[in-house]
Design a protein around this nucleic acid. Structure first.
Lengths: 144, 144
DNA sequence: TGACTATGGTTCGAGTACGAACTATATTGT
DNA sequence: ACAATATAGTTCGTACTCGAACCATAGTCA
């Protein structure tokens, strides 16, 4: 976030404001122990029918495995997920949502929707499409 | 970062890629102990002719004072800034760049320019303006 | 089979980040 | 002048995040 005036600063500010809004909504719903950083992991777990290895989470959420280890532990400590070792390969540990974790789903969907509504406001659909398109372009550029 | 597919996820990814690029450039220049998060504080200090109270940094960089305290300490430990107490009001601590800190300026400007070039790539100026405009719009929306 | 390597997770150290509690010094109001 | 309050910074506890080192276990290959 080097250029306060530039586009990178702008993007950083938007992201922070979005996170703030998410935190506010979580608090409003009395959801304890969850922060925006958990979003990607929970989203991924919502989609799973079966327990998944921690490795699978690592691959999906673009975080280093040491980060995922402690994140899963935090989630476990708060009772949202459960961990247990794989029987056939004792190196792997499976994770799954508890019923308490499953219950987060509706709130997450609601918060996502709310966030999108708030962020776009009254922006016409045409402009939204243009914005997404231009963002895709710079996403490609910056990752290349 | 709840919606991986949505605009918030996209923005989060762009920001992360930008930070990665900054870190890569810092490493390429053998600059040690500096991370993207320091950017805003350094940028602010570059603009000052005189030492400034820590309070001033807090107000500028949108970080809580406890965060700034430790950040300044880290910067000090690495020799980029110096701290000393105010003579007239002994509650306040002044900060200023050391000569080592001053030397970062050119690198920061260079990295900022590089980042902007990379992020925009070959995008026409007209599109850049539209993008900034639309981002300003959602920045307003999300902060409201 | 037995050594070497690859893989899955955890641990550690350092840094960002926050909020709450705390210290010390100023300022204000009576 | 003194009590109450405001202000400036620090400290503490918790969590994310990374990279490096570390442990097991699994797989390979000679």
């Amino acid at each position: 976030m080097t250029d306060t005036g530039g586009i990178v600063g702008q993007i950083a500010r938007i992201r922070e404001a979005a996170n703030l809004l998410i935190e506010k909504e979580l608090k409003a719903r009395s959801i304890k122990g969850i922060v925006p950083a958990h979003g990607a992991a929970l989203m991924f777990l919502f989609q799973q029918k079966e327990p998944v290895p921690i490795k699978a989470v690592v691959e999906r959420i673009r975080r280093v495995k040491s980060t995922v280890t402690v994140m899963i532990n935090t989630l476990e400590k708060h009772g949202y997920v459960r961990k247990f070792p794989c029987q056939t390969d004792s190196r792997v540990i499976f994770v799954e949502l508890t019923s308490k974790g499953q219950k987060l789903r509706k709130d997450f969907d609601a918060i996502s929707t709310l966030l999108r509504q708030k962020i776009y406001g009254k922006m016409p659909v045409r402009d939204r499409e243009i914005l997404i398109q231009l963002l895709s372009e710079i996403e490609q550029n910056v990752q290349a």
